[in-house]
């Protein structure tokens, strides 16, 4: 295990991208994914949608490949992950819909489902209300103990909190900055949010075979998820603690130029 960690620390992201990698399942909890987009052809293996019915969230299977994205947010996130990690296979969980009252319950149910299904990486480019934190915490702990990596976004404009689950130490939390490259990373040990990824003016896929440009922590987060998927594809037995250590090492070694 230690030898594997040492090897992982020595690897460069660019070298990993060229190597033979195991497939890594990445659950994307978001607004759905347009799996018919050419950039995502063959990348989405399962799809679900979470609804709140009478106060209870239900996670329901959906068809693949179909367009389940109601906003374009999830498709953008998915394209960033697949742009970095060719070995990623996405599990689409639609938790954001037109009914803005049930999002927290939908997120909790989908996260529970994704953990129980054993997906190695769970991307959460969203934050739920702080009221949900006590129920999120044991789920994130469970994922950590099972060797699953949750990557979560800081709020774009934090007022009361930085965002949940991003504030929880068992997840990898991500802020945004403008870097010259999508594969950029900074480590911020003095902050609640540990890592900073490229999240400004990111060119992404949009539903209907289109593309667009997006800015925000939502788009820095999948860049880190992509790096984690690469790492786990090369070194499948790494644990979340190891993954954080390698990311920190990479952050120290990558020439990440922050563009003001």
């Amino acid at each position: 295990m230690l030898a594997m960690l040492t090897s992982a620390l020595a690897e460069r992201i660019a070298d990993l991208q060229k190597g033979d990698l195991q497939t890594v399942e990445v659950a994307v909890l978001d607004s759905g994914i347009d799996a018919t987009h050419p950039d995502l052809a063959g990348k989405v293996s399962k799809a679900f949608a979470a609804y709140v019915v009478g106060g209870t969230a239900v996670v329901e299977p959906k068809g693949v490949p179909e367009n389940h994205d109601v906003f374009g947010h999830g498709t953008a996130v998915a394209s960033i992950i697949c742009g970095i990690a060719k070995n990623a296979r996405l599990i689409d969980y639609r938790v954001l819909g037109s009914d803005n009252t049930g999002a927290g319950e939908a997120v909790l149910s989908s996260l529970r489902d994704a953990i129980d299904a054993g997906h190695r990486v769970i991307n959460m480019s969203l934050a739920v209300k702080a009221d949900f934190a006590p129920r999120l915490w044991p789920l994130c702990e469970k994922a950590y103990r099972r060797g699953q990596v949750i990557v979560a976004a800081r709020r774009n404009m934090p007022l009361a909190d930085q965002g949940f689950p991003a504030e929880l130490t068992s997840v990898i939390s991500v802020d945004r900055a403008k870097f010259a490259s999508a594969v950029s990373l900074k480590y911020t040990p003095d902050s609640v949010i540990e890592f900073v990824g490229h999240g400004d003016d990111v060119v992404v896929a949009a539903p209907g075979g289109q593309h667009t440009t997006k800015t925000g922590t939502s788009f820095a987060t999948p860049a880190v998820s992509g790096m984690v998927a690469l790492l786990l594809g090369a070194f499948p037995s790494l644990r979340p603690f190891d993954v954080k250590s390698v990311l920190r090492h990479w952050a120290d070694t990558i020439e990440a130029e922050v563009i003001p």
């Binding site: 607004s31 109601v70 906003f71 374009g72 947010h73 954001l96 819909g97 037109s98 009914d99 803005n100 999002a103 969203l126 934050a127 209300k129 709020r155 774009n156 404009m157 949009a206 209907g208 075979g209 289109q210 593309h211 667009t212 440009t213 997006k214 800015t215 925000g216 939502s218």
Partner: peptide, 26 residues
């Protein structure tokens, strides 16, 4: 404006600031 459309709907659904641009093909 329906809540399931565009950046305004997304801002309402996520309770987050959204910054974006129009979509384009190629």
């Amino acid at each position: 404006v329906p809540l399931d459309k565009g950046l305004t709907g997304l801002a309402a659904a996520t309770q987050e600031v959204q910054i974006g641009a129009p979509t384009y093909t190629g």
